[in-house]
Amino acid sequence: MRQLCKGNVAVIKGAVLAGCRAYYGYPITPASEVAEAAALYIPEVGGTFVQAESETAAINMVYGAASAGVRAMSASSGPGLSLMQEGISYLAGSELPCVIVDIMRGGPGLGNIAPEQSDYFAMVKGGGHGNYRNIVVAPASVQEMADLTILAFELADKYRNPAIVLTDGFVGQMMEPLNLEYREILAPPKPWAVQGTAGTRKNMISSIVLEPDELEEHQRRMEAKYIRCQQTETRCEEYCTEDAELILVGFGIVSRVLRSAVDQARKQGIKAGLFRPITLWPFPSTELAACSARAEKILVVELSNGQMVEDVRLALNGTKPIDFYGRVGGNVPTVEELVVKIEEQIPASV
């Protein structure tokens, strides 16, 4: 049974189902409804909601809650995420699981509040200091806002690492039917947590490793878990790729417009297909390479000046010509606009 739900609200419905009982955040357009839904729902199931004095404080409250083993989260948009980067680095270094949602808007600086995908580098490639990775999932629908938030909590706990739900203002603001069935979701035991008990007294949460050899060992161990994550956690969706001469690559709202553009192009006799990464880190490189093997060309479309395209290039490693089309500033390409771009790549066979 379905309910009409806003993307930003679906995040919290998914989080509540996933057992999230601590939300610390700060308002920002276009992510504020996440905090509003959290303020409403999380205390109703006995959890904590605190509107922090800043995103800096919020992410450190998440750090405290995560230290105690609670499933904890925060959400914001670009400027707020910039402030959280320090905390995210500490969370990764201390191997604390948590979920952070970025409803991307236009940047840099204050930019504007319209949708962009320009936080890709900041969220997928790092952003904070030091050697670490964020697990990043990229919802493209209201249903996925809930489903991938649940997945983010599960991956965060599995790998003891922050997980980011990365999407744009449109997916956050739009309403679609949400089908969320109640089921019991249990977090794994966290014997490492600090909970003020005799059993956890020996535990310590910290990101300091003063001795170079020990810090190297700590980082090697983190690397090993990142490799495990890369081997097992990639997710993607393909549409009409089997016979595609042109593979379009896009995530989030862009993948939705691309899907319509694929339909339109096929009506015109152009064999186009869509590859949509659902996890941005780990990036589904193997899957992309396999699906591109039969194609002639690749066209990457983003609401940025070309960020994910770098991962596409790394994945295909020079085997296919790759072109890029980006819109920025809050402009989202129309279906017609993308069909023109597709026609430029592969002229229609009459």
């Binding site: 610390y24 919020a58 409250m61 998440v62 405290g64």
Partner: peptide
């Protein structure tokens, strides 16, 4: 950030 982290811990 100790008071913020302590907030998260104490609430938990």
């Amino acid at each position: 950030r100790a008071p913020a982290a302590a907030t998260g811990l104490k609430r938990a």
